[in-house]
Simulated scan of single mutants.
Amino acid sequence: MTSGPARVSVVIPTYNAAHVIGQQLGALVEQIDAPAFEVIVADNGSTDNLAAAVGEWTSQLMQLRVVDASRGSGVSFARNTGIRAASTDRILLCDADDVVSNGWVAALGRGLETHPLVSGPVETTRLSGRSASWVPVPSLTTGLFETWGGRTYGIGCNLGIRRNVWTEIGGFDETYPAGAEEIDFAWRAQDAGHAMGYVADALVHYRIRTDLRGVLKKQLNSGRGSATLYAKFRPAEVVPKSTIRRVRHEALLLRRFPWRGTPDARRQWLCTAAFEAGKLWEARRLGTPAP
């Protein structure tokens, strides 16, 4: 790890991750050809032994510190708090329960020399095992994620942002549930003229939770985020289903339950159902059609 004043800031939004954050911090210790960087753990009100877990790494990551992000809740609040505390104008975002590759800091840092925002690939099998097949995320991504109308975005656990972009668009929207906030950020940045670049060498090993309840909660929140995104932007290319078509769509989903399938097939179905339920729940709460 290069010494000297930090040129890049790594921000890690964190909540109750004492049991896994050591893997991420260990990966940051092992960075190759990276510019001098600081690491900011934005603690979103953890009730576990996070401070002690982070403290074990201060001798190897000399510019490592924990900042208090407990005055609000959610990953967007923690990210914004960590970014405000950062001392540089080059911000890299990763999550406490993932593991960055050993060239991640260098790759995203280089990407920010030519792009205002950057993201890289994720792979889902190393940390997740069989649960990687439960959710609709490829085992290895090869480009930016796409959503409605071919609009692209970078996954929140693998982002690089110039501070001026974050400032200009008002940071991450803290009203979102824990899903789709990175899409909202990318869309607002694009609307302001800041295109996102893709950095193929900036790989992150992405952890999908191995407990089904946790995975379903995440999928439910992703569905809620999708409905929030639609309510906020109302993209013209998205035509909400009529009541009759919505009922038919959900009935078809129910008929497709894999009664004779494998346990993993049934878990995949449950994840899809949780996402759909999240969309309907949040759309009803917001008083808008479900996308």
Rank of each mutant, 00 (worst) to 15 (best):
L229H: 04
L229F: 04
L229I: 00
L229Q: 00
Y230T: 01
Y230W: 03
Y230F: 08
Y230C: 01
A231Q: 00
A231H: 00
A231L: 00
A231V: 00
K232N: 01
F233W: 05
R234V: 05
P235N: 00
A236C: 01
A236Y: 02
E237Y: 05
E237F: 05
E237D: 10
E237R: 07
E237N: 07
E237I: 09
E237A: 09
V238W: 00
V238M: 03
V239M: 06
V239S: 07
V239H: 07
P240E: 02
P240C: 04
P240N: 02
K241C: 10
K241Q: 11
K241T: 10
K241G: 09
K241L: 14
S242L: 03
S242C: 04
T243K: 09
T243N: 10
T243A: 12
T243D: 14
T243Q: 11
T243L: 12
T243M: 11
T243E: 14
I244P: 06
I244K: 11
I244V: 14
R245F: 09
R245Y: 08
R245Q: 13
R245A: 14
R245V: 13
R245P: 04
R246P: 08
R246S: 13
R246H: 12
V247F: 14
V247Y: 14
V247C: 14
R248L: 13
R248H: 10
R248N: 12
H249V: 09
H249G: 14
H249Y: 15
H249K: 12
H249P: 08
E250T: 15
A251L: 15
A251G: 15
A251Y: 13
L252P: 10
L252H: 15
L253W: 09
L253E: 12
L253M: 13
L253Q: 13
L253G: 11
L254E: 13
R255G: 11
R255Y: 10
R255M: 13
R256P: 08
R256W: 09
R256E: 14
R256M: 11
R256Y: 09
R256C: 13
F257Q: 07
F257P: 05
P258F: 07
P258H: 06
P258Y: 06
P258A: 07
W259N: 08
W259R: 11
W259C: 09
R260V: 10
R260G: 13
R260N: 14
R260Y: 11
G261Q: 04
G261W: 01
G261F: 04
G261C: 06
T262F: 05
T262M: 03
P263A: 05
P263G: 02
P263Q: 01
P263D: 05
P263T: 03
D264Q: 03
D264Y: 02
D264V: 05
D264T: 08
D264P: 01
D264C: 04
A265Y: 03
R266G: 05
R266Q: 11
R267W: 03
R267Y: 07
R267K: 12
R267T: 05
Q268W: 06
Q268D: 05
Q268T: 13
Q268M: 13
W269S: 07
W269I: 08
W269V: 10
L270C: 08
L270T: 05
L270V: 06
L270Q: 09
L270I: 06
C271E: 04
C271K: 02
T272F: 12
T272D: 15
T272L: 15
T272K: 15
A273Q: 08
A273S: 09
A274E: 04
A274Q: 00
A274G: 03
A274F: 02
